[in-house]
Design a protein around this nucleic acid. Sequence first.
DNA 1: CCTACCGATCGGTAGG
DNA 2: CCTACCGATCGGTAGG
Lengths: 210, 210
Amino acid sequence: MDPDREPTESPRRGRPGHDQDAVLRQAVDLFNRQGYDATSMSDLARELGLTKSAIYHHVPSKGHLLSQALETALDELTTAITRAAEPRPDETAYTRLRRAVEQTVRILVEHLPAVTLLLRVRGNSPAEQDALRRRRAIDDQLTELVRDAVAEGSLRTDLPPDLVSRLLFGMVNSTVEWYDPDGDVDAEVLSAAITGIAFDGLAAATGAGG
Amino acid sequence: MDPDREPTESPRRGRPGHDQDAVLRQAVDLFNRQGYDATSMSDLARELGLTKSAIYHHVPSKGHLLSQALETALDELTTAITRAAEPRPDETAYTRLRRAVEQTVRILVEHLPAVTLLLRVRGNSPAEQDALRRRRAIDDQLTELVRDAVAEGSLRTDLPPDLVSRLLFGMVNSTVEWYDPDGDVDAEVLSAAITGIAFDGLAAATGAGG
DNA sequence: CCTACCGATCGGTAGG
DNA sequence: CCTACCGATCGGTAGG
């Protein structure tokens, strides 16, 4: 008779205490708490409850862990923002920009550890420099959206679009510094707060207008 | 065919070409470019054009350089924000909050390297943890200002003050990621852009109202 | 301000 | 021969 009978799980033998994904998750968590360079593979091993050498059974290098996380963050952001920016019939650039903000917030919340790591990259290695290049391409895409929205007359014209883009997505990105997925602010509330402040402002509505 | 002559620098030989402040400035610059932990004292020595050991003639330790910069940033921010938050006769909480934003931007621009370093501290040492505590006290002060402005009816009431405070000053602080003191955005323009977006919003003014 | 070093720890790999 | 590890140690480099 077949010894392993696991209907819902992979038909692997000996139950691994840790798979590659678990190591990656723990690594990214540590990188975010202490900083990438301040985190040793020994730290990671201690956290996982195994030896440093054992980690290298699962992953090829420390840099690989970083690259994997950055790739996830960049892939998710690229996909979401590219989709949000796609023009649809009878839709303003303003709507596309709003959607891009909402989608960025969504990805940020859904992939908080990976995105947090991405936003802290300094370019200390070729892999990090590559990530910075991809990030800059995304930023350019977002700036273009702001430019379009200004051009169509949806946004105030007294501020340069690249400055607006930096501040708007600076506010969005600052979320990684405090957001707690288990806290009482969910992605919808956060998204509404950001778009509310950015597009309508904090000032209390005065007069009879909406 | 004259060798380099730098009128503003000391041409002395055998005498220290660097003082403690020059070492500190270069260190903070490197810490910001590469990250504190990724920067070795050898990196700093190379940048300064002297040996690693020679640095220890000027400063007691790597951590001391970090602490000095963090103290500068925290002292400046504390002073400026405390002053801005001080109630004055016939003044709304809204005015005080606006002034706090403007003063924070001013300190951020005037002491960009030190504040940048402060905003990246992760708490990896007692000195960093102390800096984080002081930073949290400042954040609480700012949140209190937002709370007062909401309470007096100056700000929209549909968003929790602590969330507003995080997003507002998240936008302010995000400036350190891109601001260039030699660029074409000066502190006034930046300050006006931030308060303009945060309080009035990005949406183009519509209708006949203000 | 340098040469000559230290205790420790780094990321990564050996054989079993 | 496989997986999931471990004890020991590699060559270099960290802050001091």
